[in-house]
Simulated assay, not measured.
Amino acid sequence: MFEFITKRSFFINVLAAIVLIVVLGAIFFATLGIITHHGKTITVPDIRGKNVKEATEILGKAGFEATVRDSIYADTIPALSVYDQAPEGGAVEKVGRTVYLTINKTIAPMVQMPELVGLTFRSAQMTLESRRLKVGDTSYQPDFATNTVLKQVLGGKPVKAGTEVPEGSAISLVLSSGTGNTENPVPDLTGLSFAEARDALTASNLGIGTVLTMGEISDTAAAFVVRQSPTRVNAQGDINTVRAGETIDLWLSAVKPSADSVHP
């Protein structure tokens, strides 16, 4: 009798366990659609350009989660604004899906200024864009290599390659316009200091070519021009001419030439 009761209790327990599993399974599958929002979709709001706090609230009210995934710097929108989102605004997604945000940084990161002098305008533009920099104002001055960069300027001052500048900075470029068509008299530089000769050439839209020294010179800027090529006057006594953008070679000395050796 005891053995019969024990066996009967065991089978009842097994049966009760099976019934319980079936009931729990039925409840689980019945509520699965509610838990996962199966079949329930909604349009993702476009929150680009909005402050991250406001964007998170908008997404939350619409039934989405918001997570900051990345950050970038752009000077076209305010700091801490949403630069990009995934999924994009207008996409139809399940309620409860996470929308990943890319946020605009508060401070522009620093990047190294590249060397642009000697590059064509197109190459300089591509180089700046690769560093997240922009082309600012462009101006021209006569020089041999047409449309190549002669100077790179930031804030009105020349900026050297390797200098740390804020990302997004606008770099102004001075480009070569080529040599001019008009012939102008060669300026007489003999007897001038190198600094004075350099200013005179700049004023005439001419460049400095090869610079050679004669004897020991401690201060190049204070050295004197004792010879130039081309000279102002040729062997026939006629004044030589040059085009804007061309260069003049200079010979420098620490001793100022005598008045007799200076051409009128």
Score class of each variant (00 low, 15 high):
F2N: 15
T6K: 14
V14F: 12
L15H: 13
I21Q: 05
I21R: 01
V23A: 14
V23C: 08
G25T: 10
I27D: 06
F29C: 07
T41V: 14
P45A: 13
R48T: 13
N51V: 00
E57R: 00
I58P: 02
V68Y: 01
R69N: 13
D70P: 01
A74I: 09
P78F: 00
P87W: 08
V92E: 12
R97I: 08
V99N: 01
V99H: 00
Y100F: 11
L101G: 00
N104Y: 10
T106F: 04
I107C: 04
A108F: 08
E115K: 12
L119G: 05
S123W: 03
K134H: 10
G136W: 03
T138L: 03
S139M: 04
S139P: 03
F144C: 03
T148V: 10
G155H: 05
G162V: 06
G162Q: 08
E164F: 10
P166I: 04
E167R: 15
G168T: 06
I171E: 04
V174L: 14
V174H: 03
S176L: 05
G180S: 02
N184L: 11
P187M: 09
L192W: 07
A197M: 07
D199M: 14
L201I: 03
L201R: 05
M214L: 13
E216A: 11
D219Y: 04
F224G: 03
V225A: 02
R227L: 13
T231A: 13
G237R: 10
R243M: 12
D249K: 09
W251T: 14
V255T: 15
P257H: 10
S258H: 11
